[in-house]
Amino acid sequence: MSTGWRFKKRPALDYMLENLVGLYEIVVFTAEPGMTIFPVIDALDKKNLISYKLVRDSTHFVDGHHVKNLDRLNRDLSKVIVVDWNEESVKFHPDNHFNIPRWKGQDEDTSLVDLTSFLKTIALTEIEDVREVLKYYKQFPDPLAEFRNKQREYYEKQDVTQTEKRPQTIKKYFDYIM
């Protein structure tokens, strides 16, 4: 018996969307055609937390890849972070790219929990240009693991208990983790 196509939601997607809405304008920007991806996005985002959906016709086909042109967003690029596993998809604006591992369906994946913490930290510290932060973390093979390690080191250094994980000043915290 054939069941057709099935989609699986990456673990913690709802957690990420609910925690970042209001801090960020959340945009899905994909190389998939609209008629394919719109029903999937609608099924994944039941609370309509995603602000905009840009699809294949908003990309440029260059050297065999659909490239997301951030100039089409009409936003201040010092505030734009593109989260993607494929750096080729944002090669016009590599400084705005934050790499996360490609998801292969593992139920134990925690990347979006870590990503949420990373993005919340950036938002709450009111960084002037997010590209500086992204550039810093880009030097590490696993940027989210490095962020987690910096976070842990900070909390250990501050001798903060598990229930008190709020830095005294967010700026001081961010200066440490960067």
Rank of each mutant, 00 (worst) to 15 (best):
I50C: 00
S51L: 08
D76F: 05
G64P: 03
N74D: 11
I81S: 00
G64Y: 07
D63S: 11
L54N: 03
T59I: 06
L70G: 02
A43D: 11
L44T: 01
L77Y: 14
D71E: 15
S78C: 07
D45C: 05
R75C: 15
S78M: 12
A43I: 08
N69T: 10
G64W: 06
N74K: 13
L44R: 02
D42A: 09
F61L: 13
V62L: 14
I41S: 03
R56N: 05
R56F: 05
H65Y: 09
H65R: 11
R56K: 13
D63K: 12
D76I: 02
R56D: 06
K68P: 01
L44S: 03
L77W: 04
D45N: 03
R56Y: 07
D42L: 11
N74H: 12
N48H: 09
Y52A: 11
R56C: 08
K53P: 00
K46Y: 13
R56V: 07
K53T: 08
I50Q: 00
T59M: 11
R72L: 15
V80F: 02
V62Q: 10
T59F: 03
L54P: 00
A43P: 03
D42T: 10
K46P: 09
R72E: 09
D63M: 10
T59K: 04
V55M: 09
T59E: 06
K47R: 13
V83H: 04
K47L: 14
N74E: 15
I41H: 02
D45W: 02
L44K: 04
I81W: 00
L70R: 04
K47P: 04
N69K: 10
L44I: 01
D57H: 12
H66F: 13
